[in-house]
């Protein structure tokens, strides 16, 4: 564990908590892409299958349980409890265009051709593009509530901090995982234009408005 990975995990935790607060407090999931939340639930389910078979630390297990529970809980809140507030019209990104290519790629590009390894690889590839429906929805609605932009900033920062963690582990542990690194870079790059808008607008108290 290093400070970058801890900061990344805490940023990820903060993002999920911000999202849950937003949905619970406003009793609405307006502006949130249910499709991205479904993809995140798939990412955690396929990645944390070793939850019971491969104990790493109490921290690791606790975070995995929280991420699994909160992502499935968010899907429940969006598609069942607050279904009436879910914005179907703007959440239209075709997620099969994300699921199929990442599934095929995980069968071809992986460290080991075993079920667990391929599912982990699929989860890594899927996570790198899972935010696309959400970013697409923000571009379609042309704006986002400030709490939603804080959620996106924390979520985008988490994998960016993981890149620093991978640089740290390469130099100090001689360790690197090219699949996680490439996917993590793609994932972080997808947030760049949002990061620019967040820093130039939201931090100045303005609402996140995308140029129409």
């Amino acid at each position: 564990m290093n400070i970058f990975r801890l900061a990344g995990d805490l940023s990820h935790l903060a993002a999920i908590i911000i999202l849950l607060i937003k949905i619970w407090k406003t009793r609405s999931c307006a502006g949130i892409s249910g499709r991205s939340q479904v993809l995140f639930a798939i990412v955690f389910i396929t990645r944390y299958l070793d939850l019971f078979t491969n104990f790493i630390s109490a921290y690791n297990t606790a975070m995995k349980v929280f991420f699994l529970g909160s992502s499935i809980g968010t899907v429940y809140l969006m598609y069942l409890k607050f279904k009436a507030t879910y914005d179907h019209n703007h959440d239209t990104f075709r997620i099969e265009f994300l699921l199929l290519p990442t599934a095929l790629l995980s069968l071809v590009l992986n460290h080991e051709f075993s079920v667990m390894e391929i599912l982990w690889t699929f989860s890594i590839y899927l996570e790198s593009v899972a935010i696309l429906p959400q970013l697409f929805m923000v571009s379609k609605t042309g704006e986002a509530e400030s709490i939603t932009s804080h959620y996106l900033f924390a979520l985008g920062s988490y994998r960016g901090l993981y890149i620093l963690n991978w640089i740290y582990r390469y130099y100090f542990e001689g360790f690197y995982d090219i699949i996680a690194i490439v996917a993590g870079c793609v994932q972080t790059i997808l947030y760049c234009d949002f990061f620019y808008l967040y820093i130039t607008k939201v931090l100045k108290g303005k609402k996140l408005q995308l140029p129409a």
Binding site: H12, I56, N60, W120, E173, F175
Partner: peptide, 10 residues
């Protein structure tokens, strides 16, 4: 040898 995949990470 260094592990090839980062399973200790979240």
């Amino acid at each position: 040898s260094t592990p090839t995949s980062s399973k200790d990470e979240l």
